[in-house]
Design a protein around this nucleic acid. Structure first.
Length: 565
DNA sequence: CACATTGGCGCC
DNA sequence: AGGGCGCCAATGTG
């Protein structure tokens, strides 16, 4: 399998170096290419299906896509470095032992202009210019080829290199997909969006100000509180206003207002809901983020410590259900929307080898499977018990269900409990493929140690134990959320490969933790649905081999996103 | 003035 | 309730 490193020429700005290397990173042939000719050079070489190695997919791939060049696979040095730096599987490697450098800096990102704050440490900046300005005496860790060799060495010396290799490949493919999804864009119908906003909020005033329905609701609230000048958009004023009207409220939160038996409650809740819609996904959002019928958010692979993606700009991962009707397939196309049903419990069942929980997952609805097994009485109970195990419920109905869940699924519950205990001791925990949690900073670590000490006063010990439990809930959730993210990456990568074999260029347009959306020509939509199912099976095999756990999907072929589910 | 933090709420 | 996020408007700070 050929490997080609893509890097900036050390001196010539307009030249890019393509350096072929062996499987263990030893240099072979090298070609200098004018930067403008890079897409053509990449497209020509792509026939040999190389793995492209570069410092940052978000820097190199968008211009290639813009020029019409796509690549099948890559190795993203920055993302892979982050994994290897922290993983317990590579803790003794040179890479993990060396001082932090440019490979530990966040991506400057593409296509946003590079904004370098005066307060940023220039040694952590990853632009070539900034890098050139670093201290001449410092060891030069910036060479991509040298970094690739460090990464290969780290993986080769790891306890379980196969898992890490899979993780690094999935992570890198995810970076390709993130760039491709931004390039292709989510099909967005601004006319539908506009109608939807007008129906909910009333017509948009030409000179700014509140839409009519929102204004009417504000008037209702002021009347109900007998305060004609109240500013609803100020939390402080609103809280004072409610208290002046004799209401016993703690805050202006929805939760607090819902409990009120007062005429202000209904219009205020409606106002808050609509004000949120207007500010988060209203006309201003539409004008800022939708161009030529496409919403193009910036996806940030591994933007979350657990390995989940984050996004920046437009709130792509928080699209409210109320506006999903604006996501519409082009004429002659369909949206194939799929989500993994109860992914996290299924992942927990697989990684813990809990066959009883796997049996519950034989049911398309795992929670119903838990009910059918007689563990709890209702689906709601099953759901809350399971989420309680994964999130670390300590009180309330969910905590009450834990003993029963523990008896039924001792291995699954044991795994998350062990992760929680490790976190409480300040130890790192790892996902199935080896992504490892950060350890507490010095201050928190001291707190965690105090939690188990005898010397401190009772009040201090109580506070410290609280801290320890908080960190334990983080590590408890980390192993499950992070492994689910790994499954989802493998699912998406397997799907992407299968889509390439289908006519008409069906392509991924959205990804949301456990959900994917493919924009597909109508005639092949059913083929795409099959590919999504097959990819889920493949992801399960890749991670868990012949584990008996099913990864059930809900798949829908629709015209608009709101028709799914 | 710009920037950072907070409250609140959207998503999984 | 309990895990992970991002965004907006209001508010706080240098």
């Amino acid at each position: 399998m050929p490997l080609t490193v893509v890097l900036d020429h050390p001196r010539l700005r307009d030249v890019v170096v393509l350096q072929d290397v062996t499987d263990d990173g030893q240099p072979l042939a090298r070609a200098d290419v004018p930067r403008a000719a890079l897409p053509a050079a990449v497209a020509a070489r792509e026939a040999e299906r190389p793995r492209w190695v570069w410092d940052d997919t978000a820097r190199w791939y968008p211009p290639l896509l813009a020029a019409g060049a796509r690549v099948e696979r890559c190795h993203d040095l920055r993302l892979c470095h982050t994994i290897l730096r922290r993983s317990v599987l590579t803790r003794d490697s040179e890479l993990a032992q060396s001082a932090p450098g440019r490979w530990d800096a966040p991506s400057p990102g593409e296509p946003k202009a590079v904004e370098v704050s005066l307060f940023d440490d220039p040694r952590l900046a990853s632009t070539p210019a900034a890098h050139a300005a670093t201290d001449e005496d410092a060891p030069d860790d910036s060479d991509p080829l040298a970094e690739l060799q460090r990464q290969f060495a780290a993986v080769a010396g790891a306890d379980d290199p196969g898992r890490l290799r899979l993780l690094l490949a999935a992570e890198s493919t995810g970076a390709l997909i993130a760039a491709e999804m931004r390039h292709d864009g989510l099909p967005w119908d601004v006319a539908v969006h506009h109608e939807l906003l007008t129906r909910e909020l009333g017509s948009r005033p030409a000179g700014g100000g509140r839409p009519s329905r929102l204004e009417a609701l504000a008037a209702e609230v002021r009347t109900a509180l007998s305060q004609p000048a109240l500013n609803l958009d100020s939390q402080q004023d609103l809280l004072r206003g409610m208290r002046a009207a004799g209401l016993d409220v703690e805050s202006t939160r929805k939760w607090d207002i819902q409990g009120l038996d007062h005429p202000v409650a209904a219009p205020l809740l409606e106002y808050k809901k609509l004000a949120r819609l207007l500010s988060a996904n209203g006309w201003a959002w539409m004008e800022q983020w939708v161009r030529d019928g496409r919403f193009r958010p910036d996806y940030v692979p591994a933007g979350v410590v657990t390995g989940r993606w984050a996004s920046s700009g437009g709130g792509a991962l928080q699209l409210p259900t109320s506006i999903r009707g604006a996501v519409r397939a082009d004429p002659g196309w369909r949206l194939v929307v799929a989500d993994a049903a109860q992914l996290e419990p299924r992942v927990l069942a697989a990684m813990s080898g809990d066959d009883a929980m796997a049996a519950a997952g034989r049911h398309a609805d795992l929670y119903q499977g838990v009910v059918d097994a007689g563990i709890v009485e209702t689906r709601e109970q099953a759901k809350y018990a399971m989420l309680g195990a994964i999130y670390g419920a300590t009180t309330g109905a969910s905590a009450m269900l834990m003993p029963g869940l523990t008896r039924a699924y001792p291995r699954a519950v044991g795994l998350v409990e062990a992760a929680a205990r490790a976190g409480e001791r300040g130890e790192p925990v790892s996902t199935w493929l080896g992504r490892t949690s950060p350890v507490p900073d010095a201050a928190r670590m001291a707190e965690l140690r105090a939690a188990s000490s005898e010397g401190a006063g009772p009040a201090d010990v109580r506070a410290a134990r609280q801290q320890a439990r908080t960190w334990g809930r983080f590590t408890r959730n980390f192993v499950v959320q992070g492994t689910a993210a790994e499954w989802a990456l493998c699912w998406m990568a397997a799907l992407r490969r299968r889509l390439r074999a289908i006519d008409g260029r069906p392509h991924l347009v959205f990804f949301l933790h456990d959900e994917v959306m493919v924009h597909s020509p109508e005639p092949v939509a059913d083929e795409v649905a099959t590919a999504i199912h097959d990819a889920a099976v493949e992801a399960g095999r890749l991670l868990f081999g012949d584990s008996p756990v099913d990864f059930a999907l809900q798949v829908a072929v629709v015209d608009s996103y709101d028709q799914a589910k």
